[in-house]
Design a protein around this nucleic acid. Sequence first.
RNA 1: CGGAGCGUGGCGCAGCCUGGUAGCGCACUUGCUUCGGGAGCAAGGGGUCGCAGGUUCAAAUCCUGCCGCUCCGACCA
Length: 448
Amino acid sequence: MRLSRYFLPVLRETPKEAEIVSHQLMLRAGMVRQASAGIYSWLPLGLRVLDKIGNIVREEQNRAGAIELLMPTIQSADLWRESGRYDAYGKEMLRIQDRHERDMLFGPTNEELITQIFRDNVRSYRDLPRNLYHIQWKFRDEIRPRFGVMRGREFLMKDAYSFDLTAEDGRRSYNRMFVAYLRTFARMGLKSVPMAADTGPIGGDLSHEFIILAETGESQVFGHRDLFEGDVPPADTDFEGDLQPIVDRWTSLYAATDEQHDAARFDAEVPADKQVSARGIEIGHIFFFGTKYSEPMNCKVQGPDGSVVALQMGSYGVGVSRLAGAIIEACHDDAGIVWPVPVAPFEVGLLNLKAGDTETDAACERLYGELTNAGVEVLYDDTDERPGGKFASMDLIGLPYQVVVGPKGLKGGEVELKSRQDGAKSSVPLDSVVQSLVSDVSERRLLV
RNA sequence: CGGAGCGUGGCGCAGCCUGGUAGCGCACUUGCUUCGGGAGCAAGGGGUCGCAGGUUCAAAUCCUGCCGCUCCGACCA
């Protein structure tokens, strides 16, 4: 992408409504603009990040055997009356009426709708297990939205729903999502820790929140230090096999959010030098809730013995839009964002220090073409802005690699190659920079 | 909803107390000079001062009501 034709409004100063660093940087880097309280427009750069996050989530869901579909944002109130949640949900649910004065709502979650779809189309245990998911906008009319996209009212969420014949099978479905989540967040460069969690309005008795540590986290979390350094299950993990040992390993050590925290247990189970007490951000939440929806909504199949049984269900959420903010909270420095390669909006920033100069233009065009053809995502700053401004903007938007092309270096046939992550700079021959970048970038696209 | 604060050009702010020509920095446009880490000079463009009432000869400024936004608390992916 050529910057001269792109839409990337960067801000030199910090808008005063932004209090936390990820919100400030998202506004300054031209990723989002606030439409109203807790509701955001995603500008081109932000959308690219959102898509990358969504695609990683998608790949890992698919790997774990979940199947993607897409449900609407607007739902019928009648469906929610079946489960009893129309009255139970409270004011977070945005209730609206259509022109015929039918009660509708903007979906805060989709248990009811997916249960309806499933019950209307599945009759036999032979069609089990199934896990269906979608990535769709949700609306929860929070009392107080804050922290930018981290706690907006409108947010993009991946929500998966599992259907099983027995509780044991349901547990296996739960485990598949548990392992998928460990991989999903690790691929974004995040160290997530599953923690015993409250089930809230979703219901059920088995639940984990996936937490990353961040100073601006919304809740206090407690855990064993070793959990924050554990190895993530590899890509060739057999999701059809027994995942219980993996889950057991991750849940054997103490980890809890403040609402579940038991200080006495914490002190008894975790040696003082292994105790971690910090702020955390919830980026995923999984639940197993049995027949909470299938029973009242009559989502039943015939088992092998001919009996009709209500399905065992679970639901599994990932805050896709929240992750964009959460990753920035975890990955930034004084100059701006420092994107991990897998979620970076572009992988390489190409800086033409003297746009209009025949030689630098030619060298940049060549690099831009070759990198693009090699499948590397390049943002080419071909504007005639001064070098200082170009450097500052590139650092702000945080692309992992920068290629600096100017007359000085070109005299020796060289360009400067910089890593945003560690700030390392090196002079590289013009002829080998593409090869070097292609291998560096592709190596870091897959973190696990 | 309880408490606190803020709404003045795209962004950041001053002016309000003590009513009288709407200002500053950045950004933007044009020209010249500059050009390897946010340049200099010069000339420009852009504002219903959140909205509505009221007081007054006169309101960004004083009064009343409303709206929006932010922070702390209860709620949450």
